[in-house]
Structure formats: C-alpha cells, structure tokens
C-alpha cells in the first residue's frame, strides 16, 4: 500500500475532501489533518513539496486556493505522487471545467467516484482520464 490518505484543503485550512486508506478514529483524523495543514500551509512556494510528518511523508501541491495533500509511505516515489495529484486535477478539470473548491464541495460524491476509479486500497490503478470519467458520465446521462 503506497497512498495512506488524500486530502483537499482550502487556503483557510478547511478540509474539502478526505479519503483515508487506513483506519483512523475521528479524533485522530482531526488532529492529523490539523497538524499537517498547519505545516504545509506555512511553507513558501520555493520550498519543496514534501513534508515529513510522524511516519508519513506528505506530498502536496497547491492549485489556486486549494491544496492537495497526499500522505504516503516513506518509500513511495514522491515525484510520481506529485504527478498523480496533477493527473487528479486534470481529470477533475475535464469533468467540471476548471475545477474549483465549490465544485468539489457541492459534488463531493463525484470527486470520490473519480478517486475510487483511480486509487484502490492505496494503489494507483487507473491513469486514463476517459476511463476514470466514463462511469460518471454514464450515470449523468442516465439521470
């Protein structure tokens, strides 16, 4: 298992999406999210995109007002995760058209469906945008 959790957080540090691939209690998650967000948001643009926290390595990337944070095992390929975040954003862009914080808030389930297609149990399983979006488009068409 490579990816332990995926978070989307806005500039104010509010969580907008949280997907965990391991079990944490609500209290643990709140504490973890708080610590990580504080750490990452304090960093400048010039600093690298990796932060070590507890036994995780956080790979993060900022898109406008939204931070994408991915917690991975220590031996995961950080650059690949960075690329994965970009792929996720591009996929969302294709679906929502220039995705923003509100799109994710009001279509939380869709964001989760995309993640579900891309990542399974912490492993990346699909990297084609059209494959990822196909089931969602199918559902949209049906409704």
């Amino acid at each position: 298992m490579g990816i332990r959790f995926i978070l989307m957080v806005n500039k104010q540090g509010q969580t907008r999406l949280a997907q965990y691939y391991e079990y944490l209690t609500i209290e643990e998650r709140r504490a973890l999210e708080g610590e990580i967000v504080r750490k990452c948001l304090a960093r400048t643009e010039q600093q690298c995109s990796f932060v070590e926290h507890r036994n995780y390595k956080i790979v993060y990337r900022r898109y406008a007002s939204l931070f994408f944070l991915v917690g991975v095992d220590n031996d995961e390929n950080e650059l690949a995760i960075l690329e994965f975040i970009h792929l996720l954003v591009e996929t969302m862009d294709r679906h929502f058209g220039n995705v923003c914080e509100l799109d994710i808030m009001f279509h939380l389930e869709k964001a989760h469906f995309m993640l579900e297609e891309m990542v399974m149990n912490g492993c990346i399983v699909e990297t084609s945008k059209s494959n990822i979006l196909a089931p969602i488009q199918l559902m949209d068409k049906a409704s």
Binding site: N77, A80, E83, F84, T127, S128, N131
Partner: peptide, 16 residues
C-alpha cells in the same frame, strides 16, 4: 494520447 504525460506514456506504469 490517453496515457501520455509530458511525452511519456503512462509514467505510473513505468514506475510500478
């Protein structure tokens, strides 16, 4: 085109 990222076909698969 479906798997291309920066001129490389599916870098994730490479890495895996």
């Amino acid at each position: 085109p479906e798997y291309d990222i920066a001129g490389i076909t599916d870098p994730f698969l490479h890495i895996r």
